[in-house]
Design a protein around this nucleic acid. Structure first.
Lengths: 240, 240
DNA sequence: CGTGCCGTTGATGCCTATCAAGGACCGTGG
DNA sequence: CCACGGTCCTTGATAGGCATCAACGGCACG
């Protein structure tokens, strides 16, 4: 029996499918009940914005289903997807008063909203929550560092391989049949802006991976990894 | 009278020039005294390594003077400088058991060492320390996100301008005369590996900034910013 | 069945890497 | 004090990877 089962029947966290991996798991049932009651649930259709660059950052969000992207836009329109956020990830952990980037739903998305001030008071009260928050920030920092290496020194092919490997780790499935499947809810343009490339280059590298028999696209939004070995070699930059 | 003055005469934190900006400032004199007594001071000459990729990460370090770089090396030798660490910065805040990257002194450097386990027990005991640690991680995450934008979407000239702006913010001086000076303790090669470029390209962009009258190099390791306005426009990607 | 968006493929060009050589600086040793 | 060697920086010539521009194809939707 999980601690969530101790919550009141109508408590929204009761059915949260990610709470075992999220910050919330740091709280016991009483605290969680108290913590969450003031929040709210947000549903976004694919493409809808969560907030914009410069908006007041007075809320923190937990992704419970779907995918969110964090966008940076340069004055002349160049776009960089700073990160994709998957179920269990938090949005808005930064300490700035205003958001540095805009956030937008990639696919239909549900989020849990927390008032930031309230969140911080809870972190002060429950050291376990503060500790979990720190672990998450440290983990995101480690991911960001890996991405810096990718953007600074990897080729287009290596970047795409790294991306597919990462997405597989986050939301991929290794079916009983053994097929490693990677869902790709985001568009080629989004992938390009995430990898620092153009959508044309991403498309070309997809076909290369396909003709090299490393992946097999089941559809535009779902690819199977045929050769995990070579995929890993590409992703880590082991010259072929 | 600062709280450091309350320390015993021989306490190593007493003369620490960065403690007002570092994590240590979250502790009162008694706690600081206790906290630090078990540590140690490390002195590295320029070029000396602090630790290597894969080493056991059982220590945390605070840079008190000098500059440290965090290096990623790909299997075929490609190098990426993930970040430069300046006085007040912490090294090793990540939560992995082993270091993802190697760390090396750029210039002669002094660091304060803390045993990681002990550091974490202190964070548990002193919420103010945990909070400061979180703020620092969040701030480094924000920097990493900015760097992702730089590496993903900015041109060579824009990257160098961003770099000079950042370094100026961290260790630059605006003299009474008004001259904005940026010390550059790291080599051109280090700058190149930080910006995802080659040393040749970095060198060329330096001369462009010089011939455009945006900077004036006083020496290889010290440049003056002549035109902060155009420097900012370049750094932020406002097309010229 | 048309329309529009997205993805793919092709032709060309630009930005930066690579290869190569010369110059500045610095410490060493004669 | 200066010659010397090494390292780092700068500059030049060429090449390559990815961007850009353009057209086509597939799929969803009205």
């Amino acid at each position: 029996m999980t601690k969530r089962a101790l919550l009141q029947d109508d408590h929204p966290c009761r059915d949260c499918s990610v709470s075992t991996e999220s910050l919330c798991c740091a709280l016991d049932a009483d605290a969680l009940s108290d913590f969450r009651n003031q929040g709210g649930t947000i549903c976004l259709a694919a493409g809808e914005p969560l907030f914009h660059q410069g908006d007041l950052a007075d809320c923190v969000f937990s992704v419970t289903s779907g995918v969110v992207k964090l966008n940076a836009i340069l004055p002349d329109g160049r776009r960089q997807v700073v990160t994709f956020l998957f179920p269990g990830d938090f949005v808005g952990l930064e300490m700035n008063d205003r958001h540095e980037f805009s956030a937008e739903a990639v696919s239909d998305t549900r989020l849990c909203r927390f008032l930031k001030g309230r969140f911080e008071r809870f972190a002060d009260r429950y050291p376990a929550l503060a500790a979990a928050r720190y672990r998450r920030a440290a983990s995101e920092l480690a991911s960001a560092h890996q991405k810096i290496v990718m953007l600074g020194r990897k080729t287009a092919a290596e970047r795409l391989a790294s991306f597919l490997t990462d997405v597989h780790r986050r939301i991929g499935t290794a079916e009983v049949s053994g097929a490693k499947l990677v869902p790709l809810p985001m568009s080629r343009g989004d992938i390009a802006d995430y990898l620092g490339l153009t959508k044309e280059t991403v498309s070309r590298e997809f076909t290369r991976l396909r003709t090299s028999r490393i992946i097999r696209p089941r559809s535009v939004t779902l690819v199977e990894i045929l050769d995990p070995q070579r995929m890993r070699e590409l992703a880590f930059g082991i010259a072929a």
